[in-house]
């Protein structure tokens, strides 16, 4: 962490608490259209979330006032964001261009991007994993995987 103190509202717990209050508040709106008995449990939970988050916010701000630095969420935000984006991209790829193609690309790509670069190992792993999946799921259990929306008509 750098020495310059972060603005108090940018602390992760504070941000999370504010996020919960906003989302829970927004979700409270549709409960108005439900029958009272139907709205009872969801509304109770949403109000509970709001109250608890406000308490969390207050606690975190008290700590901030004392000058305690928040624990960092991650040492390398770039790797985390990169990993998450890659996973999302993989899901989208499976959906649009097909499961097997995207899997065969993703396994070596992710491993390579995050530091494992032995070409033989990558090839072997990809072949083994894709082959096993095909053997067990497709061949053995005739389970369909996404074929790719792009190729559909």
């Amino acid at each position: 962490m750098s020495d310059t103190p972060k603005p108090r509202l940018m602390r992760p717990e504070t941000l999370t608490a504010i996020g919960i209050v906003v989302v829970a508040g927004a979700l409270l709106i549709p409960t108005a259209e439900l029958r009272p008995i139907s709205a009872l449990l969801p509304a109770a939970m949403l109000i509970g979330l709001i109250v608890l988050s406000v308490a969390l916010l207050a606690m975190d701000q008290r700590r901030a006032a004392k000058g305690e630095a928040p624990a960092p969420m991650t040492k390398s935000p770039k790797r985390v964001i990169g990993a998450f984006l890659l996973i999302v991209a993989y899901a989208l790829a499976a959906d649009f261009i097909g499961f097997y193609i995207s899997t065969a690309i993703t396994i070596p790509l992710v491993a390579w991007a995050f530091g494992y670069r032995a070409p033989l190992g990558l090839l072997a792993a990809t072949v083994i994993v894709v082959g096993t999946i095909w053997l067990i799921f497709d061949f053995g259990m005739s389970q369909d995987f996404p074929a790719g929306r792009l190729w559909k008509d």
Binding site: T106, A111, W112, Y116, A125, V129
Partner: peptide, 9 residues
């Protein structure tokens, strides 16, 4: 990384 990518699949 390899373990990670296999788990994702």
């Amino acid at each position: 990384p390899l373990l990670g990518s296999v788990i994702i699949v």
